[in-house]
Computed example of a mutant assay.
Amino acid sequence: MSFQPQALYDLSGRVAVVTGGGTGIGLIIAQGLAASGAKVYITGRRLDVLQKVADSWNEQNAGAPIIPIKMDVTDKDSIKEGRKFIEEKEEKIHILVNNAGQVGPTSPFLGNPSAPELKDGETLGHALFNNETFGQWSDLYMINTFSLFFVTTAFLGLLDKGSKDTEGYTSVVINITSISGVIKVAQEHFAYNSAKAAAAHLTKMLATEFALKKVAVRVNAIAPGVYASQMTFDEIKPEEVDKIGKGVMPVPARRAGTGQEMAGTVVYLASPAGGYVNGQEIIIDGGYVAVNPATV
């Protein structure tokens, strides 16, 4: 048994799939997994974006490759095609990161104390009712919640095969949720926060059901706080953190999270170091949840 970092966090020979892997947090995760030795397939709707970042990585790094695949996580036929492609190439996978997501409808007036929409209960109710639609909520839940179930179940057999590679190793699903799923303020987007809360509970149900059914695949979640991504900004300065976080209290760390912190948490859960973690949601938020109203 070795306690050297190279052994604890080595992903050599592992195969990973990262949805929404062409930009933001998904790309950071894909690069972190590849840097640790995993062969990484990144998926998304825009193949040109995926191809560009994959080519850039592969040209600059001699280690494990990043391979682009066009796959829409809200379309069952597209998911099946993605699974078929990877199965023909690899026969099994070891890591699935469900990262694809969107923000959805927002109600910016919730963050403005002087907004006329906040005049009284009647006014606020009308503003919220008229500002969003069932279609917007449905579309958001499709990608932020429903996709986790369908992508995970589609790839479950390949993950199960991956668990048979090394004694004591189990494949893992890592769902990227959000502190928005545990915080009790709406942060100007009720739909996004409730969808992420649903994703967090879905994570725990999948972990429990797989364990009870003796399927050797772990399921965990990571709930990031304020991180630079396509949904926020390419770079977040310290003075911008609380504007994005929209909490009642400031983020204690007084900065955004880094790519190393995000990728490092994923690598931990996917590596031998995190092999005993199952059914958990790890919050990485610089203390945001510690000082704001939350369900944990």
Rank of each mutant, 00 (worst) to 15 (best):
residue 47 L to A: 08
residue 227 Y to Q: 09
residue 172 V to R: 05
residue 278 N to E: 00
residue 290 A to E: 15
residue 216 A to D: 05
residue 184 K to V: 03
residue 95 I to F: 01
residue 226 V to P: 00
residue 163 S to P: 13
residue 154 A to L: 03
residue 15 V to I: 15
residue 141 Y to C: 04
residue 39 K to F: 04
residue 244 I to Q: 02
residue 46 R to L: 08
residue 228 A to D: 03
residue 256 A to I: 01
residue 174 I to H: 11
residue 83 R to P: 02
residue 107 S to N: 15
residue 82 G to F: 00
residue 93 I to R: 00
residue 226 V to R: 04
residue 289 V to N: 12
residue 195 A to K: 00
residue 44 G to H: 09
residue 211 A to H: 03
residue 222 I to V: 12
residue 171 S to E: 12
residue 205 M to N: 15
residue 12 S to T: 15
residue 153 T to V: 07
residue 154 A to G: 01
residue 47 L to I: 15
residue 222 I to E: 01
residue 128 L to I: 15
residue 233 F to A: 04
residue 117 E to F: 05
residue 7 A to R: 07
residue 156 L to H: 12
residue 100 A to M: 02
residue 21 G to K: 12
residue 69 I to S: 06
residue 108 P to V: 12
residue 212 L to Y: 04
residue 22 G to S: 13
residue 12 S to M: 11
residue 166 T to S: 11
residue 205 M to S: 09
residue 89 K to H: 07
residue 195 A to L: 04
residue 36 S to F: 02
residue 95 I to M: 00
residue 287 G to E: 11
residue 13 G to M: 14
residue 290 A to P: 11
residue 66 I to H: 08
residue 70 K to F: 06
residue 238 P to D: 14
residue 166 T to Y: 13
residue 159 L to Q: 01
residue 110 L to E: 07
residue 258 T to I: 12
residue 128 L to K: 07
residue 268 Y to W: 10
residue 192 Y to N: 10
residue 58 N to W: 14
residue 36 S to G: 05
residue 79 I to E: 06
residue 195 A to T: 13
residue 97 V to P: 00
residue 224 P to V: 10
residue 160 D to P: 04
residue 279 G to S: 09
residue 22 G to F: 11
residue 96 L to N: 01
residue 248 V to W: 07
residue 268 Y to M: 11
residue 148 L to R: 00
residue 86 I to H: 04
residue 47 L to T: 10
residue 98 N to S: 14
residue 269 L to D: 11
residue 188 E to P: 00
residue 198 A to K: 08
residue 174 I to K: 10
residue 213 K to T: 09
residue 168 G to A: 10
residue 257 G to C: 09
residue 40 V to F: 03
residue 211 A to P: 04
residue 22 G to Q: 12
residue 84 K to M: 09
residue 193 N to S: 11
residue 133 T to N: 09
residue 131 N to S: 15
residue 289 V to K: 14
residue 227 Y to V: 07
residue 146 F to W: 06
residue 285 D to Q: 01
residue 240 E to Q: 15
residue 193 N to I: 05
residue 135 G to N: 13
residue 212 L to Q: 02
residue 287 G to H: 09
